[in-house]
Computed example of a mutant assay.
Amino acid sequence: MNYTVEVIINLPREKVIEKMDNPQNLKHWQKGLIHYETLEGTPGQEGAKMKLEYKMGKRDMALIETILNRNFPHEFHATYDAKGVHNIQKNYFEEIDKNHTKWISESEFHFSGFGMKLMAWLMPRVFKKQSKKYMQDFKNFAEKDISVATKN
């Protein structure tokens, strides 16, 4: 399954990258993120692996991010692996003008196991909707400092 989503962020590209390139900001735009840790490599650099743990309703999910290409401010590519799912994500950041940035995200999913393949076939829009939600949440955080992090 492949799809592309995009969002216009009302900030200069340098500010967008500054907020995106800080792992401490992940909790502010990735709802449900409860923990992350570097597994290997230099954090944020090509080849680095990071474990991301999420609580989504009653379900726990863990992903392993592997950075493939880090060419900020232009692009950032990574893979995300979870049980039954391999996701390749290519992110591009285009400078529209000095105060606006277009974030384009191309996602490619590969599924293993009957359950995941069936879910992807029956509900492909769920994946695209979730990607768009993360992008919109990032936009709200970057522009307005609105966080999705739960308050304890």
Rank of each mutant, 00 (worst) to 15 (best):
M1A: 14
T4A: 09
E6T: 09
V7R: 11
K15R: 09
N22F: 02
Q24Y: 08
K27H: 03
G32M: 05
L33P: 02
H35G: 08
T42K: 12
Q45D: 09
M50V: 13
K51E: 15
A62E: 12
I64R: 04
E65M: 11
E65D: 11
E65A: 07
T66C: 00
I67F: 07
I67N: 13
L68V: 09
H74S: 09
A78I: 07
A78Y: 13
A78V: 08
T79V: 04
D81P: 01
A82Y: 04
K83Q: 14
G84Y: 04
V85C: 01
N87C: 11
Q89I: 15
K90G: 00
F93N: 00
F93W: 01
F93I: 05
I96C: 07
K98E: 14
N99P: 00
T101V: 10
W103H: 07
I104K: 12
E108N: 15
H110M: 08
F111Y: 14
S112G: 14
F114W: 12
K117G: 10
K117W: 02
L118D: 06
L118Q: 04
L118E: 01
A120W: 03
L122S: 10
R125A: 14
V126P: 00
S131M: 14
M135G: 13
K139P: 06
E143C: 03
E143A: 09
I146D: 00
S147H: 07
